[in-house]
Simulated assay, not measured.
Amino acid sequence: MNPERLALYAISQGGYWAPRALAFEHRFVAAVIDDGVVDVSEAWHAMLSPILKALFDNGERDAFDAAIASLPANTRRTFTWRAKPYGCQSFFDTFLEAARYKITPDLAARIRTPVLIADPEQGGYLAGQPERLYDMIPGETVHVRFTEAEGGAGHCEPMARSLAAQRFFDFLDDRVGLTGS
């Protein structure tokens, strides 16, 4: 391993973890973040119906957890799977915990690594966050839009992985310098 060629690639919620890591770890030569995440809780709250949102906002822990438990099995599985990394005992507590996961301007200001931030059209519950992250990082940052016309719409460009890979590897090749080595 050559430490002068250390790169970081993050996808989905890794778009939160990578900028956080880059604020403290400065050995990376370049990073690709697909999609950028500023506030994890925004994605969590976007999944809530108006009724669930009202229960959460009113602090009704038991009613909130009961309402999620009564959702269709597929929806419950999605909530349960997404909640695992947080290690909380209830869905209500998981939503509270997710609110702690934010990239602040002070944290972003610590990033010194060149970063490419992918930003697909129709980004779903992360829409707008990649551009916000781009605006917060003071150093070399490249904001790459993916459009529906080129097949790159949707969270992490699921229908345009070849296009995404080409753009990401072009960025990394320019900074990590593997060509001709």
Results as ranks from 00 to 15, higher is better:
G151P: 13
P85N: 03
I117R: 00
L133I: 11
L116W: 04
D65G: 06
A165G: 10
F171H: 03
A73P: 09
I111L: 07
F168E: 15
F24D: 15
R27L: 09
Y16W: 15
A7Y: 03
A18V: 13
E42Y: 06
L178N: 07
A99C: 12
H143E: 08
L22R: 08
E97Y: 07
A30R: 04
L6C: 11
R5V: 04
S41K: 05
R110K: 15
T78G: 06
T147C: 03
R110V: 07
A67F: 03
F168R: 06
V38A: 04
A73R: 10
D35N: 15
R161E: 15
A83R: 03
V40C: 01
R112Q: 15
A18Q: 11
A43P: 07
D135T: 05
Q13W: 14
A98H: 02
L172D: 04
C88N: 13
L71R: 10
L126I: 13
V29L: 09
D57W: 01
G59P: 06
I68G: 05
Q13V: 12
D119S: 12
L163G: 11
R20N: 09
A43S: 14
G139D: 06
V40N: 06
G124I: 07
L126Q: 11
A63K: 10
L52P: 09
A63Y: 00
D170S: 11
L116Y: 02
I117N: 01
E148D: 05
F56E: 00
R5N: 09
Y16I: 03
A30V: 12
A54F: 00
G154M: 08
V142R: 09
A160M: 05
I51T: 14
A109F: 05
G123N: 15
E150P: 11
R5S: 07
D106T: 12
S181Q: 11
C88E: 15
T94I: 03
R76H: 06
I103F: 07
C156S: 10
Q13N: 14
M159P: 05
H143Q: 08
Q89L: 08
M1K: 06
T75E: 14
P72T: 06
M159W: 11
T147N: 09
F28M: 03
A21M: 13
A30Y: 04
L126H: 09
L96I: 06
Q166I: 14
D119K: 00
S70G: 12
N74S: 13
